[in-house]
Every structure is written in structure tokens, then in C-alpha cells.
Design a protein around this nucleic acid. Structure first.
Lengths: 190, 190, 190, 190
DNA sequence: AATGAATGAGCATTCATTCAT
DNA sequence: CATGAATGAATGCTCATTCAT
């Protein structure tokens, strides 16, 4: 992809994220996205077929960026350390760019999400499942249904990061990362 | 309120819940709600000023129905029993009418939610906070930040009920209620 | 169909025909059609899915009105009288409402015409073919390819009516009808 | 005109004719013409002020090519031979390149045609008129209104060539040329 | 109160034309 | 000259809301 195109796409994605933070996905207008990105409305349609494709492309990009960063080569570590690292990276990524989490939370329930993007989470969940299964075999993790444990973990990360983002004075500190992970670990350890 | 009016309101609310399950909140159209409720579009505006008021009224009704049921006079029981009962009732209510949870999840992040309704959750959270504080003083609950614990609990209940609703074969059994609560309890107990 | 609906459709069709005469089919705008029909733009979309459907419906109506009028119960008459009556009615109908011919001529080559409407002429052509075949068997009509004769007749009617319509001072008189038919008849008679 | 320029113009004209056959004049887009001609959109505007000029230039070129070929020095021949030769050349030219006829038919009723191009037919019609007038004075041609006869002839040529072009299996043979002319001649001869 | 056709402001999308490279 | 990405005015279409019946 040419540098110009990449740059233009990022301009558009950044503008979309910024606006989502202000007006939500339901309030997004193509003309506003263009204005926020300092381009003409028509230019958006050079890069995307329509509004739906633009939003799905942004979702795909955010997911693509997130998952590898989270699961990056930690397979040699102890289970609880692996989980801790994933926990930390997930929280940091989500909270670091709070616009990201606002967009993701809203997009997944919007009428715009495509079938293919609906399935995109599954890769990460499978990876998490492997770790949990291994933990069970090492007698470190509870013998509960893995799907339930995964639901617990993801539900907590989402709630927690959303809370920090929405709480104006909220900050993600080492202490809060450790404390939240500790709670999560107690929930799933044997 | 006259019986006719109550009946009419329920017709509208049921139609709205049903449609939300199909098209999401962002996809709701007043004309469709009317059609689904077997009334004329104009009739909606006899009962509600506009779309925003209709949705907020539905949210208010769902919350009003849920909260009392959950917190109904259990203050004399042991902390973990109180929490277990709340856990069970919350799960049952959410899963029982899956349209309810879909609507609630979407509404709280929609542009339609009013300031007053944004605060409605707080009552329940304060109640939960009291229980947790009492638990801490009885040395049963972790000495962690109560808001974090609440976030954990609510995040898990939401994720878990959503998963059961979305999983076609998902059923809420005594076993899954107990198992999920057990995990949650391990997370917050001392 | 209710009277109101019929009236509304005619309002829209009339407005469309009038505008086609001014700006041609390529220049038609939905907002202008609405304005010309003294209704709101949105109202057009109550009666028609989109612009394409509106135009196809108008074409269908014009054709439906024309064909029966032309072929109305003349089968007992002599061949040349039958043809003369069809010739006269066709010319009168086309010239009588010159907007009709302008619309028809433009629509059949526009990108809006649907496949089903493309086939609509065939009914009339088949009727004409029967008459010509009968004429041949009675030794009144040339033994030439019927399709060619039909093409001749229709081509001439179209050209002639278009010329009269476009010629500002043009009038369709009994004399010009008779004269033009006489020429046509000489072309096809044995 | 430089060779390069001539070549470029032909590239553009050919592309325009080809596209008109596919999407009609109303469906022509400058970007598609450029693509079909394997040049950049902007390049079109080096050779033509705008879309209207491009189409009018193409129409003018097609007419310039056609008329001389049709009326080329046949004035010494008998009237019916003159007409036969014109008939034959006209049919051959039109059918030879069916895209030509599609374009011409659509362009003359499009909103793009300029006043000057509207008059371009008149030269040919005047020539035809002279022949018919001469034929009348020689007692060979009917004493009918010449404009009507011209309308008949042109209408038939157009319909007939269009039919051959649209009829997939249609071929222009010596036999069909002779047969069609014979019919036409019967129509106008005394 | 109930109706539902009508409204029109608002938004998504198109495409002829321009201009920096 | 040639390019093609960028432009933005113009246009098709939507849908919350109104109002005559």
C-alpha cells in the first residue's frame, strides 16, 4: 500500500474514532468524518464503498492491531504469568486509547457490523482457551467450563477498562493492573 | 393509569423489545415499532413525546422491574448468601427475557439515554457497595477497591448472561448458576 | 385502488410527463417531480420504491392505455380499413398528448427501463402481424417478410408523429392522416 | 492535426461508442470513457472542454462521415436509382457499425445535443428533398408533401437498421436491401 | 383517541471537473 | 501533455414528526 494511501486511511480512521467519542456510532455522518479528516466528502468514497465498509474496515484494523500485541510470544512462560501479561497489555491498549474502546463497544452492537467481523473475536478466544486448558492440566486452573472462565475474564476486562475510561479521574496504574489481575486470578485458579 | 393505556403501553414496549432483538437500537424506526405493535405511527406520539422519550420510558420500566426483584429484603442473610441470591435473580431475569438484556446493553451506550436514566444504575450499585463494605468489615470480602469488585461482578453477570442468550443451545441451569457464582465468589472473597 | 391513490398517482405521472417535455428523462429530478406535482419529495417514495420504479410504472401505464385503444375490436373489418383505423388512432393518441411520445421515445433507450417493460411492445406487434398475415392470405398485402412490414409501419408512425409534435406549427388533420396512410398502404399492398 | 492527437481522439470516440452500446448515453460517465480509452480522466479535458463538447464532437464526426458517403455524386442517375443507392449506402453504414446507430439515435434526443448539431441533419434532408421534387416534376414520385415522404423514408431506414442490429441473427443481405427498398419505393412512387 | 398519508429536513452517495505532480 | 486523486455541488432517498380526517 502506498504511503499516501496509508496516510489518508489513517486520517479517516482517526477522524472516525475521534467523532465516535463525541457523538457515538449512531451519530456519525460521512460529511462530518470528512470534515474532521480535513478532506472532501467525496474523497471518503474513493477509499470506501460506503459508510458500512468504512466502519467495518476500522473495526478490522483495531482488532488486527490488538490481538497480535496481546498474544505476542509468551508461550514459554508460566500460565499465570502468561495470563498476567495478556491482562496487562489488554488493559493498557484499551485504556491507552479510550476512543478505541468506545468505538469497539458500540460497533459490535451496531447494524453496521458485517458477518465476517462478527467472527473476528474467535481467534483470540481460542488462544485464551488453549492457555486455560494447559493450566487445567497443570492443576493450576479450576476445573470449570473453559467458556465460562473466558467469559468471566473478557467481561471483567471490558467492564474494568470501560469504567476507567468513563471515570474522568480514572488512571490505569501498575497498582490497579495488579490488583485487578489478582482478583481475576483468584476467580480462576484452583 | 387506565387499563387501556397500560395495555397500549405494554403493546408498544413489547414491540420495541422484539424489534431491538432484530435490528438493534440504532435500527429502530418509529413506523416499524407501530407496525409491530399493530397500531398507527401517529398513535405512538399520543403516548410519547418522541422516540427518545419512548426508549427512555422503556429503559426506566425495565430497571424499575429489575432492581426491586434483585434486592428484595435479603439484608438479614449472610453476605455470601445475599450475593448468591442477587447473582441468581440477576441471571434468571436477564436470561429469562433475552430481549431485555439486548435492549439494556445497547441503550446505555446509545445517544438516546437521558441524564436521569444514566444515574439509575447507581442506586443498585450503591446497594451492592453496602453489602461489599459490610462483607469487608466481617473479613469475608477482599480488601480491594469496592468499585473494582462491583465492576468485576457486573461485568461477569453481563458477559455470562449475554453468552447464554447468544449461544443457541445455552440454558441457565442450577448447576451453571452455582458454578458461575462460585467463580465469582472466589474472586472477591478474602 | 382507492380514489385518493389513483388521483395521487395521476398527479405524479402528469408532473413527470410535463417535466420530461421540458428537461428530458436524463434531466428528471425527484425533487422537481414532487414540486411539479405539488407534493413533498418524500411522498413520491410512498408510491414508488425509487426513481426507476416510478418511470417504469409510467411507461407501463402509457403502454397499457395505448394498446387496447389501438386494437379495439376491429377484427370484422376489411384489412385496409383495420390498418387505417389503427393508423389513425395511433397517430391521434401520439400527437394528442405530445408529452406522451417524448417520454416514450426517451424512456425506451434510458438506463431506467426494466427487462419486463422492454418486452411490452411485443403484444401489439403480434396483433399487427396477424392482420398482415391475414392480408397476405387474402392477396391484399405484399408477400414480403412481415417483420419488415411491421418495422416499416411503426417506423413511419413514430417518425411522422414526432415530426408533427416537434414542428411547432404542426397539426394532425384528417387530410394528413389520410395522406400518410395512403403512402403507407401503397408500400405494403400487393 | 498531429497524428498523436488524431489517434487520441479516435481512442476517445471509440471508447464512447462502445460504452454507449452498453449503458446508453444517459449512463455515460467521464471516468468510464477514460478507462475504456485507457487514458486518465483528466486527459479527456485536454481534448474537450466538457462532456457535452465531447459528445457533440462525436456526433459531428459521425454525421460528417455519413452524409458525404451517402450523397456522393449520383445526381446524373435516374431518380429511383439515386434513391436506391442512398438507401443502400445508408443501410450499410448504419448496420456496419451498430454502435454508430445506437449513439445517433440516443444523442439526438439527449439533453447534450447543441443547437448547431440539431441543424446538421437538415443538409441531408434538403438534398433528399431536391431529389424528391425533381422526381415529382418527372412524374415519378407521388404528389404528396415532400416533408412527409422524407419522414417516411428516414423513419423506415432507422427502424429497419435498428431492427437488424437488435435482432441477434439479423444480417443485411442484398436481398433484404432490395426488398426493403422496393417497399419504400412503392410507398413514394406515383 | 386513533389513524396513516404527507411532510421536509437531513444524510448518503455520485460524478463532472480541477489541479498539483 | 498526461495523470488520477481530490473536490463539493447536486441529487436520491430516509424517517421522525405532524395533522386532517
Amino acid at each position: 500500500m502506498s504511503d499516501t494511501k496509508t496516510k489518508r486511511l489513517n486520517q479517516i480512521f482517526d477522524a472516525t474514532l475521534r467523532l465516535t467519542g463525541e457523538v457515538g456510532i449512531a451519530g456519525l455522518k460521512m460529511s462530518n468524518i470528512a470534515q474532521e479528516a480535513s478532506i472532501a466528502t467525496g474523497t471518503l468514497y474513493i477509499y470506501f464503498e460506503n459508510k458500512e465498509e468504512l466502519l467495518n474496515a476500522l473495526y478490522f484494523k483495531l482488532q488486527k492491531e490488538s490481538v497480535p500485541a496481546i498474544i505476542n510470544d509468551i508461550s514459554h512462560l508460566a500460565i499465570n504469568i502468561q495470563l498476567y501479561k495478556m491482562w496487562k497489555i489488554a488493559l493498557e491498549r484499551l485504556v491507552d486509547n479510550n476512543l478505541r474502546i468506545i468505538f469497539l463497544e458500540q460497533f459490535v452492537i451496531s447494524p453496521y457490523i458485517s458477518e465476517s467481523n462478527k467472527q473476528i473475536d474467535i481467534g483470540f478466544k481460542n488462544y485464551l482457551k488453549q492457555i486455560l486448558e494447559q493450566g487445567k492440566s497443570e492443576n493450576l486452573i479450576k476445573d470449570a467450563n473453559s467458556d465460562m472462565l473466558i467469559t468471566l475474564i473478557i467481561g471483567f476486562v471490558r467492564s474494568f477498562s470501560t469504567q476507567i475510561v468513563n471515570d474522568c479521574s480514572g488512571q490505569l496504574t501498575e497498582k490497579s493492573i495488579d490488583e485487578s489481575f489478582s482478583i481475576c486470578w483468584d476467580a480462576i485458579k484452583k
